[in-house]
C-alpha cells in the first residue's frame, strides 16, 4: 500500500491578523503547526501502513519553513517527506496548488491512496483534495469519518451535515479526513531524533516540469479583492416575556438572521 499525504502548515492561532495593505496573513511571530485535519490524514496513513505494509510519503507545497511540519510528519511515522517549494509557486489559489501537488504525486507515482485534510483551517476552502482527484482522474471520498480497505477498494463513511453516507470506490483514490476519523498520535521521541537530522528534498517548478501558466499567481483565477477582519459588536438585545414567549421570539430572530 503506497500512500501519499498532503500536509499544509497553518498559523497556530485563532486570532489571525491580516496586513491591511498587502492583504496577506501576518505570519511573523506566529508559530506554524500542521493543519489539524492533516494530522488525522497522517494518522490514518501510518495506521494503514502499519497494518498492510508499504510506504507513506508526505508532501507539502510552501515556503522553506514548512519543512518543520514535514519533520513532524516524519516523527509521527511517515517514511519520506518532500517539500515542494519555489518562488514561482507564490500566490497560488487552490487550482494552482492542486496542479502542483498533482504533478508531484504523478512524479512520485505508484500510489494507492492519497490523503488530504477536509480543509485547511487558515483558508477554509476544502477544494484542494477534490481538485487533486479530478486532476489525477481518480475517485474521491470527502469528509471521511471511518475507513476500511477491502481488496482493491476502500469503503468509507462520509460525515455529512445530517447524515452519514457510506461509499465504496476502487483504488487508487483520494480521501479527505475529518477529526472524527481517528486520534492522531504524538510524534515519538525516537523518530523525532531521526526526523530532525533528515534532509528533506525540495522539488522546484523545474523539477516538476510544471507548466508556468498553471502555477503561482498566473495559474490562479481566484483574485482576492479585499480581505478584512469583521468588526466585533457587543450589541445586546434583551428578550422579555414568559419562557415560552422568549423561546418563540428567540427562534424567530435566529431564523431571521439565518442562523437556523
Amino acid at each position: 500500500m503506497n500512500i501519499i499525504v498532503c500536509v499544509k502548515q497553518v498559523p497556530d492561532t485563532m486570532d489571525v491578523k491580516i496586513d491591511p495593505v498587502t492583504k496577506n496573513l501576518i505570519r511573523e511571530g506566529i508559530e506554524g503547526v500542521i493543519n489539524p485535519f492533516d494530522k488525522n490524514a497522517i494518522e490514518e496513513a501510518v495506521k494503514i501502513k502499519d497494518e498492510y505494509g508499504g510506504k507513506v510519503t508526505a508532501i507539502s507545497m510552501g515556503p522553506p519553513q514548512f519543512k518543520e511540519s514535514l519533520k513532524e510528519a516524519l516523527a509521527m511515522g511517515v517514511d519520506e517527506a518532500i517539500l515542494i517549494s519555489d518562488r514561482a509557486f507564490a500566490g497560488a489559489d487552490t487550482l494552482a496548488t492542486s496542479y502542483v501537488l498533482a504533478e508531484a504525486i504523478k512524479k512520485i507515482g505508484n500510489y494507492d491512496l492519497i490523503f488530504c485534510g477536509k480543509h485547511a483551517v487558515d483558508a477554509d476552502t476544502g477544494q484542494v483534495g477534490p481538485e487533486i482527484a479530478e486532476r489525477l482522474g481518480i475517485p474521491q471520498i470527502t469528509f471521511v469519518k471511518s475507513l476500511k480497505l477491502e481488496n482493491d477498494a476502500v469503503v468509507a463513511e462520509r460525515l455529512l451535515e445530517d447524515a452519514v453516507e457510506k461509499v465504496t470506490v476502487k483504488l487508487p483514490a483520494v480521501i479527505t479526513t475529518t477529526k472524527e476519523l481517528n486520534e492522531p498520535r504524538y510524534p515519538s521521541p525516537i523518530k523525532i531524533m531521526k526526523a530532525a537530522r533528515k534532509e528533506i528534498p525540495i522539488w522546484s517548478a523545474s523539477e516538476l516540469n510544471a507548466d508556468p501558466e498553471q502555477i503561482g499567481l498566473k495559474g490562479s483565477p481566484t483574485q482576492v479583492v479585499d480581505i478584512f477582519t469583521p468588526e466585533k459588536t457587543t450589541e445586546v438585545e434583551m428578550i422579555q416575556g414568559t419562557a415560552e414567549e422568549i423561546a418563540n421570539t428567540l427562534f424567530e430572530k435566529l431564523r431571521e438572521k439565518k442562523v437556523l
Partner: peptide, 16 residues
Amino acid sequence: LTEEQKMIRKMVREFT
C-alpha cells in the same frame, strides 16, 4: 535550541 530540542519541547508540551 536545536531542531530536535524544539521538536521534543513541542511534543512534550502537547502531551502535557
